[in-house]
Design a protein around this nucleic acid. Sequence first.
DNA 1: GAGTGCCAACTTGCATGCAAGATGGCATTA
DNA 2: TAATGCCATCTTGCATGCAAGTTGGCACTC
Lengths: 241, 241
Amino acid sequence: MEDRMARTRSAAAAQDQEAERRPSLVDDAYAAMKQAIHDSSFAPGYQASEQEIALRLGMSRTPVHEAAIRLQEDGLVRVLPRRGILILALAPDDMREIYDVIIAIEGRAAELLAGLPDSRRNAVVAELAAQTDIMAEAWDAGDLAAWGQADAAFHRALVERAENGRMTRIVQTINDQSHRARMLTLKLRRELGASVAEHRAIIDAIRLGDPGEAQDRAHRHRLRARDELLPLLESFGLKHL
Amino acid sequence: MEDRMARTRSAAAAQDQEAERRPSLVDDAYAAMKQAIHDSSFAPGYQASEQEIALRLGMSRTPVHEAAIRLQEDGLVRVLPRRGILILALAPDDMREIYDVIIAIEGRAAELLAGLPDSRRNAVVAELAAQTDIMAEAWDAGDLAAWGQADAAFHRALVERAENGRMTRIVQTINDQSHRARMLTLKLRRELGASVAEHRAIIDAIRLGDPGEAQDRAHRHRLRARDELLPLLESFGLKHL
DNA sequence: GAGTGCCAACTTGCATGCAAGATGGCATTA
DNA sequence: TAATGCCATCTTGCATGCAAGTTGGCACTC
């Protein structure tokens, strides 16, 4: 009986709203292409034909075309009328734009978190602190991959716990755009150690319930990271990546 | 003769880069549907069939379907597999999210503007001041439409002059989402007069080159507007709009 | 009368056909 | 040899066909 009710309820929910519809071919194409761009199987500047991609994915042109529209909306490719799909490159100026967006969004998120009521704020603080601890350990152990994962988790939590779906989505989109750059720079950067201290400063401000200070700390953290990254990229002559 | 030149010029531009390609049927469908949503010909909650829209626009289902994908990416509709296109409604909670995004982005934009070198900063200040003056005049004249236009122009300039394409795009998308709400609330709000003073405070901070103050002023301006709007919407029982 | 199941009508997902735009190379000319 | 123009080829924009999923109503049962 409960069983039937449960099934009915979830079926209704699925119909109603947050349907986890099983992936369509369009979804497959979208995921495959995004993956290919992330791991540089599709290098920036490469001009692919929909036909060719469709063939490789074993589907017709239609779902590939529709996925390309979504990727264009995400800023990852450009669909050139009658000339194919162009994989977009990232210039240093794009990184400047991207960092400004992140500074804006994460700053506001930190501010919002610091304004939460005590109980929820403490839960958030605990989560952020846990990730930062993992970072510190990974740093000591020289485990760059673990460091990167925990850093990503910290920043993801920072935004997601502010419970603003639009802010979360914006940050995700922009992280997708800069994915290649992040992978590259993780290896280039020398000053990863500073992040732990800065994360803890952000956490402290949130713990104390000081929105202005939280915003400012988050702000400065990203600003410093950007100011270290951009010259690095330019000195390596990376006009586009 | 002029005709031939014009054609040649536009053709070259189209090939080159920032192509203003002549609108495809997909573009037409996208514009028409967005327009219909904005002026509520498609009311929120309405479930349209692609076939029907295609018929009305005099095209086949394909371009309508592709336009629907873009509108979904914009957060204006939801494409329900095999059930049609659902026009999304806006709940008060969505307005909260939207305002937080605007606060974040405009705050950062104001900060960036205040950090510009003198000459460019002065140009920006002049532009912002001009729009605010128009607002003051419109306010005195009781011309609500003019007030709204100048207010929109002020906020658009605030973001666009920061020269960050991604921030501009984000704000545009979010403004599209809240278009209906803005049209409605323009008539409901009583305290539009305060905006002029707040705009001038933002402008002053930019003129003085004080990034922190500029950010804070922009921040507070939107926060006040939000805090006046949300209760208003809820008191009117507008669960969705 | 309430509940159940079946079916016809409708809707989209995806494949494919066709036409028009874009491109690169080859032939032609000076 | 360098420049020009034409054409075969490739590529997408869009229409349409078909199949599968969804829905609402009607008949049937109890």
